[in-house]
């Protein structure tokens, strides 16, 4: 593993995205736009205040999942991954390069969406704004890591896109967006305990409603971070130097 190789890979991935203005605009602005829609579709500030933390977890998660699974699938399909595997670069360097590049993109995306909620849509955050921002970025990184991992099982970009409703959609339904998790059918509530997005949503709910740095909050953050690392490690395991 080498910091140098990670950073030059990050720089290369940023270079690839930099020219693609449309994707950049979509990634940074779409979650913010959806936030505005949510605010005025319900047209109720209290309701928005209740939903906004959940949405701040969901939108970056989904967007990062999609962007990453397509980008890494391309790397696999175009032969560049095979080429890299013949060179002196570790799999982890490559994956961390992706993680840092898309993590930076997530920072911008969450920054735009969160600022909008705070300064225009009137979301009131009781806890630390910086920590809320950090949790949302971590959650975007989780989406990214899952996207990386899942891309190993897609042969085409069509399949990769269809994995989104499967892996992200189910988590969105079960994370407590529609009804609180403890109001769901018992089995589903149990299942949602095993889905990482649930913990990201819980953490964001806690930070917006309480200034206290509770043990529960720290646990939630820990689970999201651990799941991200786990998904990255699983992603590394799917990269092979030799293929059939």
């Amino acid at each position: 593993m080498s910091l140098r190789l990670t950073l030059i890979t990050t720089w290369r991935i940023i270079g690839q995205r930099r020219r693609d203005h449309r994707t950049l605009a979509l990634v940074t602005l779409v979650p913010a736009l959806l936030m505005v829609l949510m605010r005025y579709v319900f047209d109720s500030k209290p309701l928005f205040e209740r939903l906004a933390p959940t949405l701040l977890a969901i939108f970056p998660f989904i967007v990062m999942f999609l962007v990453t699974s397509v980008a890494t699938l391309r790397e696999r399909r175009s032969g560049t991954l095979e080429r890299l595997m013949t060179m002196p670069i570790a799999k982890l360097d490559l994956l961390l390069g992706y993680a840092v590049a898309f993590g930076l993109l997530a920072v911008i995306q969450v920054g735009v969406a969160a600022s909008l909620c705070l300064f225009w849509l009137g979301l009131d955050v009781k806890g630390s704004f910086a920590l809320m921002f950090g949790i949302a970025v971590l959650d975007a990184v989780l989406g990214m890591a899952l996207g990386l991992f899942v891309s190993a099982f897609a042969r085409t970009e069509f399949q990769a896109v269809q994995f989104m409703p499967l892996f992200a959609g189910t988590q969105v339904l079960l994370c407590g967006l529609l009804v609180p998790r403890d109001h769901m059918a018992g089995v589903l509530a149990r299942i949602s305990d095993f889905l990482p997005l649930s913990y990201a949503v819980d953490a964001l709910k806690l930070i917006t409603t309480s200034a206290e740095l509770s043990r529960e909050l720290i646990q939630d953050i820990g689970v999201v971070a651990a799941c991200s690392l786990l998904a990255l490690a699983a992603g590394a395991a799917t990269l092979r130097r030799r293929t059939a």
């Binding site: 890979t9 690839q16 032969g79």
Partner: peptide, 24 residues
Amino acid sequence: TESPAVYADLSVRDNLRYFAAILK
């Protein structure tokens, strides 16, 4: 390889710079 394994969304020079950096 027979099918060119380079990044389509980078310039020729940026492709070479990236791989050159990996190969030192």
